[in-house]
Design a protein around this nucleic acid. Structure first.
Lengths: 285, 285
DNA sequence: CGGAGCTTGCGTCGATTTGTGCGTCGATTT
DNA sequence: AAATCGACGCACAAATCGACGCAAGCTCCG
């Protein structure tokens, strides 16, 4: 019950910090009640409390408070997915599927290239690439043919996604497939979408064993790490916790893909449930 | 977005060097934060970071650090990539290997891109890509680390090779990996080399089962077919003969890669033993 | 071909700066 | 009257500072 306005003391008690600390956070990092006039008492809404909890979780993980606050601060209230608006992806889907069956790489490149250029990476992925991939996959599953169609399609998609120009500057986001996990196309889409938003990232590739992953993290110190798991067999949670419990842990450790266990993930692990949401979250890191 | 003011540690982490190294660069070459008073902590602005990145990119290409620092030091921040004298293959190998170990995708792309542009696909493949791939592969074989380095390198090579513009027109050459064969990088190199010679080709991809291959041949009627086999386990000869004995056989059926049996191949099957030779032969087809 | 000498990246050490949570105080809000 | 506000300050820990040194990779020279 209760909502619509926690006082400073109540909020502090709920979070287990001193009242003065909340004031300090507000003054130093701007992390306070969204609407507050100087001199008046602070009123923490549910949204504000969410922000504070993120702040707390990150700092508990060892993130520097200033960085944690910056991260938790300009973070809109969950629930993303604006999505939609369609000039007609349907014809692109049909054309792409046809070109794929004819093994016509050039036309495939043209179609995908123009979709990415005109509508952006995220719609291209969710409304064109994914449907066609699934369609071909189904055909392949029933008959034993069309493997080569599937491979060619994957290759062209990889090519088109890779052609999205990476922004300059050192990447602070690391993307990797879980141990034994072969699929990387979704990660490539994420990398391309981030590149489109001028956020550089580092895509390690398929089948990254935990040791190599930790090694790479230690060597490059990313601000965020995304692990993709396609099948439950590759979604072992301790890969995530080992990343989190690093000496220099990333600000954000995120799990993406259907392979991870449903239900709650360990503390400090973020679940990404869609490409749009992932981009939104990671561009803030 | 007024976050610019990186601490020494943060700057070092983003560049992938040790904190002490940044201090050394400052002391030895004067390459440090533009405004810094002795005793105070260093604050690296975006401009400073740009300078450091130039420094890093130059050294990665084999430039002596002292010279690189002098060059990066008094230089307006606007110019990103100097792209100076043609890198000798040897220094390109060294620089590429270093960038790969640092997981620096941007520098890898720059190096490979310029090598391909200035020397062509074939030398780039035989003198730079192959040596570094083998070198990293060896390291990976002994220790269990560096898988991620290998994957990233493969990905970047794929990317660079794919960026070689395909010539227009219907492809009459089909390239495919043998059944169960995972490796396609050599085929990608071949496709790129052909593209460079303005010969369009069709690269099917990895693990093409015989049925799918015959199917694809029937649907597109290529003049030449190249099958790649990396390991003897995937080099079963009847894949070749079945292609040859098609109702509408290609003019040329070629076997490439170390997986095929040594000694004589069946009648009408050509063996390709090198990239240069393959390009030469296929451009005549 | 081997060793002297140079450059260079980086680990270590004691001293100092900086970041951070929170207690205290007089004034103001609820 | 109780709770909170803004300002100030303090203690503690983390990060960084400057100095020094070492080892690996060169270049040159006998």
């Amino acid at each position: 019950m209760v909502d619509e306005a926690l006082s400073a003391g109540a909020a502090a008690r709920r979070l287990g910090v001193a009242v003065t600390t909340l004031r300090t956070w507000h003054q130093r990092y701007g992390l306070g009640p969204s609407a507050h006039e100087p001199g008046q008492h602070r009123r923490y809404t549910a949204d504000d409390m969410n922000r504070l909890q993120i702040m707390q979780r990150l700092t508990a993980q060892g993130v520097a408070p200033a960085a944690a606050a910056a991260w938790a601060g300009n973070r809109p209230p969950a629930v993303p997915v604006p999505e939609q608006a369609a000039p007609r992806p349907e014809s692109a889907v049909r054309g792409l599927a046809g070109a794929a069956m004819r093994l016509d790489a050039q036309v495939m490149r043209d179609i995908l290239g123009s979709v990415v250029r005109e509508r952006g990476v995220v719609p291209a992925w969710t409304e064109v690439m994914t449907p066609v991939l699934i369609g071909i996959g189904n055909r392949y599953q029933s008959t034993q043919r069309f493997v080569e169609v599937e491979h060619l399609l994957s290759r062209i998609i990889t090519e088109v996604l890779a052609s999205v120009q990476q922004a300059a500057g050192p990447p602070r986001i690391m993307l990797a497939a879980a141990d034994e996990e072969q699929h990387t196309l979704p990660l490539e889409a994420l990398a391309a979408a981030l590149a489109e938003a001028r956020v550089p990232s580092r895509l390690l590739g398929a089948r990254v064993p935990p040791g190599a992953l930790l090694d790479a993290i230690a060597r490059t110190g990313p601000a965020a790490v995304v692990l993709w798991s396609q099948r439950p067999a590759t979604g072992s949670v301790d890969q995530l916790t080992r990343v989190r419990d690093n000496p220099h842990p990333p600000f954000v450790v995120a799990a993406a893909g259907p392979g991870w266990p449903t239900g709650d993930l360990p503390l400090g692990i973020t679940r990404l449930t869609g490409l749009a949401e992932a981009v939104h979250l990671l561009t803030l890191a």
